[in-house]
């Protein structure tokens, strides 16, 4: 039996909260750099250069990449024969709150969604998932709501053709439009149940977008990306350059009567990081 202390998990969450908010991911930085070659007009060039410059300033000054420092989502993918000792929920939430205060990040979390109580820094959403892997993986995603508001679930028929899956995802990207901060990173969850498809889609956002493809169904992901990039939304909705920087798909077994397809839209700075414990 391996033992992990909740305090140590929370320590990693603290570090990742600060890092993902202030340092752009290298795969995304490279994707934005290479998009520069695809834009011509003065406005598109100035806006795309602003995004690249933004990452440099954030790193230099410690200011967050975006004022929407998000709702923190923590995936704890527990290794086999591993137990966590201590108050995981309490430790993680205190770590998130401390990280956000220390790094001057914005309180954006509304504890009571109906009464709309004044915003705070916590709680985070914690997904605890047992796995058969040897080591425990902690993934932290700071999810902004410009893009989250545009995420969708499609409950397709079990007889749906492959093209219908592509079209469901591409139509979601199309309706996300300029306000979700394109070019996007897109996470797709196929199968499972309605809730599982959406959480897989969110988990799929937290996969690299360059190098060897990390998701499932590489050809489907490639077709979605190609079709989405013909939508013409472009960098920040200005109609030039890529609409989508990367698409990753994860899947789960499903029921004979259904085909859930969850789509989670991530902005051009999709902020996540991970650590193995």
């Amino acid at each position: 039996m391996r033992r992990l202390r909740a305090k140590d998990v929370a320590g990693k969450v603290y570090e990742l909260c600060v890092k993902v908010n202030t340092c752009i991911r290298p795969d995304i930085r490279r994707a934005l750099q290479s998009a520069l070659a695809e834009v011509r007009s003065e406005s598109a060039r100035v806006f795309l250069s602003a995004l690249i410059e933004n990452a440099r300033i954030a790193r230099k000054t410690g200011l967050p990449l975006c004022q929407d420092t998000g709702l923190v989502i923590v995936f704890v993918e527990l290794g086999k024969d591993t137990c966590i000792q201590g108050d995981l929920v309490g430790e993680v939430n205190r770590a998130v709150e401390r990280a956000y205060k220390d790094a001057h990040l914005r309180p954006s979390v509304v504890r009571d969604p109906v009464e709309r109580t004044p915003p705070g820094w916590a709680p985070a959403l914690i997904h605890l998932e047992p796995t058969r892997r040897k080591r425990t993986r902690i993934v932290v995603l700071a999810k902004g709501f410009g893009s989250e508001n545009k995420s969708r679930l499609h409950m397709l028929l079990p007889t749906a053709k492959r093209e219908e899956i592509v079209d469901a995802v591409v139509s979601t990207i199309g309706s996300a439009g300029a306000s979700a901060c394109p070019p996007f990173v897109v996470g797709v969850g196929i199968g499972g149940t309605s809730d599982r498809a959406m959480s897989l889609a969110k988990r799929a956002l937290c996969l690299r977008i360059d190098g060897p493809y990390r998701g499932e169904y590489p050809e489907l992901a490639r077709d979605i990306k190609e079709k989405a990039n013909r939508l013409g939304i472009g960098v920040l909705g200005l109609g030039e350059g890529p609409t989508v920087l990367g698409v990753n798909i994860l899947s789960a077994p499903t029921h004979i009567a259904g085909l859930p397809v969850g789509v989670n839209i991530g902005c051009h700075s999709t902020r996540w990081g991970e650590v193995l414990m």
């Binding site: 602003a50 995004l51 933004n54 300033i57 975006c66 004022q67 915003p119 300029a178 909705g237």
Partner: peptide, 27 residues
């Protein structure tokens, strides 16, 4: 429209900032 997601970049274009109404609303 301003460049979305360029918050640190745009901060450098602000030379003065002060709350002028509804301070209780925080951000």
């Amino acid at each position: 429209i301003a460049p979305g997601g360029a918050g640190a970049y745009l901060a450098q274009r602000v030379v003065r900032a002060q709350v002028v109404a509804y301070p209780e609303l925080g951000p």
